Amino acid sequence: MDDTERQGPDMGAFLHLRGNALSKGDPVALPLVQSSMYHLPGEPGSFSNYGRVHNATWVALEHALEHLEAAPCRVFPSGMGAISAALFATLKAGQRLLIPGDGYYVTRLLSDRYLRQLGVEVVERPTAEFAAGGFAGFDVVFLETPSNPGLDLIDLAAVAGAVRAAGGITICDNTTMTPLGQRPLDLGIDMVVASDTKAMGGHSDLLMGHVATRDSDLLQAVDDWRRISGAIPGPHEAWLLHRGLETLEVRYDRMCSSAEVLAPRLAQHPVVRAVRYPGLPTDPAHNLARGQMQRFGFLMSLTLENAVKAERFINTCPLLRPATSFGGVHSSAERRIRWGDAVDPGFVRLSIGCEPVEELWQALKTSLDGVV
């Protein structure tokens, strides 16, 4: 990861994306368009007509996301809304879907409880062995890398090429990395989905997701799904996400830089049995991470001896919020086994926030020191 790769999108241009298109007297801040109805005499033509189909605040947000992804984007009311759109827009009865068996558990629930019941064959493979067995016969291959919560990696370019050669399409959940940390579309992936509830919004005050693709047919299918299903975001949430994106680079850099400092220190603490973080040279995915990621991310996992010690660590640290989800300005942590993930009872997913790194380290260390 050289300095050029680390830059990612042109964030200076991003911050003035709206400003450079303003006319005299226009508001600098994005207006919030709340209307469900539009003044529409005569034939509708290409004018805005109904709030389920069009909203000016969405359009501005999608324009901003398009700059970050270097691809057209469509926004949805949650990350699972985006995942649902991508899967329902690309699959039909009789087709085959491959998903990671150790990825985000709600994606597995959606596939098992709904897609399977509608005649889609669903196959699961562990992230670390995802390419084993090849991709022949799969219509859609859904990837998540790093996996949530285990942080195993998949070689995106290799899988994208193999799936395309086999006649399938690829969808990658890039929630854990954002387009500043990893760029799946540049590596050949057909479609990206993400929960913008996490780092993209960054302030733990909204639910939102997006789909990005450079394939016009896939984009149209996603567009149709949103319009017909009604899986639309609220304009206020879209406005909040647009505002959050303006500080994304600053927040993300702080979070990733702090994680790179903290991971080796945590790995050496005597009560920590194991640490997974792609930025650690000892991590089994480190070499792959160096090749396909712009940053190593802000997520890591710690494994303590048991659930009691893990809970004590989380709940006695004043700079950790014991909460599900991740990617906010506040560092947070949780034991993922409580949601049914196949992890050790003492496994803790740790999301590094924007606190000063040395202050955060002292708080983490003090809590770990108190775990006996």
Rank of each mutant, 00 (worst) to 15 (best):
residue 1 M to K: 02
residue 2 D to Y: 06
residue 10 D to Q: 00
residue 12 G to S: 11
residue 14 F to P: 00
residue 20 N to Y: 05
residue 23 S to Y: 12
residue 26 D to C: 07
residue 34 Q to E: 13
residue 36 S to V: 01
residue 39 H to W: 07
residue 40 L to I: 10
residue 42 G to E: 10
residue 43 E to S: 12
residue 46 S to Y: 06
residue 57 T to R: 12
residue 63 H to W: 14
residue 65 L to N: 05
residue 65 L to R: 07
residue 77 P to T: 00
residue 77 P to W: 03
residue 78 S to L: 02
residue 80 M to G: 13
residue 83 I to R: 01
residue 89 A to F: 06
residue 91 L to G: 06
residue 93 A to P: 03
residue 106 V to L: 15
residue 107 T to Q: 14
residue 115 L to P: 14
residue 127 T to D: 03
residue 128 A to C: 10
residue 132 A to H: 13
residue 136 A to W: 08
residue 136 A to D: 15
residue 142 F to D: 11
residue 144 E to G: 07
residue 145 T to I: 09
residue 146 P to V: 11
residue 147 S to H: 07
residue 153 L to V: 12
residue 161 G to K: 12
residue 162 A to E: 15
residue 165 A to T: 04
residue 173 D to F: 01
residue 174 N to P: 07
residue 176 T to C: 04
residue 180 L to Y: 09
residue 184 P to Q: 00
residue 186 D to E: 14
residue 193 V to N: 06
residue 202 G to C: 00
residue 205 D to P: 09
residue 207 L to H: 04
residue 210 H to I: 08
residue 211 V to W: 14
residue 215 D to A: 01
residue 216 S to Y: 06
residue 223 D to L: 00
residue 223 D to F: 02
residue 224 D to S: 00
residue 227 R to G: 01
residue 227 R to S: 14
residue 228 I to L: 05
residue 230 G to V: 01
residue 239 W to P: 04
residue 240 L to Y: 11
residue 242 H to G: 13
residue 251 R to E: 09
residue 257 S to I: 03
residue 258 S to Y: 01
residue 259 A to L: 01
residue 260 E to K: 03
residue 263 A to K: 10
residue 263 A to I: 13
residue 264 P to V: 02
residue 264 P to M: 11
residue 265 R to S: 03
residue 269 H to S: 04
residue 280 L to T: 08
residue 288 L to K: 06
residue 296 F to H: 11
residue 297 G to Y: 04
residue 298 F to A: 13
residue 300 M to I: 08
residue 303 T to W: 07
residue 316 T to S: 13
residue 318 P to S: 02
residue 325 S to V: 00
residue 325 S to F: 07
residue 330 H to D: 15
residue 332 S to M: 04
residue 336 R to A: 14
residue 339 W to S: 02
residue 340 G to A: 09
residue 340 G to H: 13
residue 342 A to S: 12
residue 343 V to P: 04
residue 347 F to C: 02
residue 349 R to M: 11
residue 350 L to K: 05
residue 352 I to R: 09
residue 355 E to R: 12
residue 356 P to V: 10
residue 356 P to M: 11
residue 361 W to M: 10
residue 365 K to S: 12
residue 370 G to T: 08
